[in-house]
Simulated assay, not measured.
Amino acid sequence: MSTDAGVRRRRSRAERRHQLLEAARDAFVESGYHATAMDDIAERAGVSKPVLYQHFPSKLDLYLGLLDQQAATLVELIEQALQSTQDNQQRIAATVEAYFDFVDTPDGAYRLVFESDLVAEAAVKRRVEAVTDACAGAVAEVIQEDTGLDADHAFLLGVCLAGMAQACAARWVALQRPVPRSRAAELVRCLGWSGLESFPLARTPE
């Protein structure tokens, strides 16, 4: 029998960080930033506070790490949706679905981006604004390419579409999914497409 039998494998730094972020995510979503203590997070993660502080020097650092993680996930979902097809009606549908994918998870982590109780903190505000602009900007690039509108006009349209999808998806969850998800997403798609189709296509359809 190996002398290592029964010995628990030591977690790598990346694994430990992931474990701590998961524990913090659950705590922040459940109680909010201000009501969550580092003691609570350490207990959830099953580690000592010194171990927690080795990875994250403060509660704010931990929160920002989570916010960066969720922001990257959302931006990736939006970019994948926009690149999934050249048909603009389908692009809108895919983009709307990306927002519903982001919010429709058991952990409720989307609230860190869409409903943060720490937006008065400058570092949090910058990150929330950055992810909002990144998603709207990704949509705007496609709009500008396809309609020939200038960057400022295209960006405002991107803000409109992204904001509508975000608000509807988040509210749909908050209202405890009052209609089937497919129907909720279809309503947003129809509204978005009815507006954007009024702008003539400037490129040759593929």
Rank of each mutant, 00 (worst) to 15 (best):
L118I: 01
F102Q: 12
D117M: 06
A120R: 12
Q54A: 12
V128N: 06
A136V: 10
G148S: 10
S58T: 15
V113R: 05
D133G: 04
P106Y: 04
L82N: 10
D146N: 15
T132H: 08
Y99H: 14
A154E: 00
S116T: 12
A140F: 04
T85G: 09
D61C: 08
Q89K: 10
V51G: 01
C135T: 15
L77W: 00
L77H: 07
R126K: 11
D133A: 15
V96H: 01
L62P: 01
D117G: 10
A136N: 08
Q69S: 08
D150C: 04
Q80R: 15
D152L: 08
V51I: 14
T95S: 14
T105A: 06
V131W: 03
E97D: 15
V124I: 02
L62A: 01
T147D: 00
S84A: 15
I78E: 08
L67R: 02
A71R: 05
A81N: 06
G65L: 02
S84D: 08
D117F: 06
L62K: 00
A98Y: 12
V142R: 09
T73S: 14
G148H: 07
R127T: 02
Y63R: 07
D101Y: 01
A98C: 12
E129I: 05
D104G: 09
F56D: 06
Q90L: 12
R91N: 13
H153D: 14
Y63M: 09
L74R: 14
A123Y: 04
A122Y: 05
I92S: 04
Y110I: 04
Q90N: 07
I78A: 13
T85I: 10
A136H: 09
Q54D: 12
Q90E: 14
A130F: 11
A154N: 01
D68N: 10
T105E: 06
F114C: 13
T147Y: 03
E141R: 13
L67A: 04
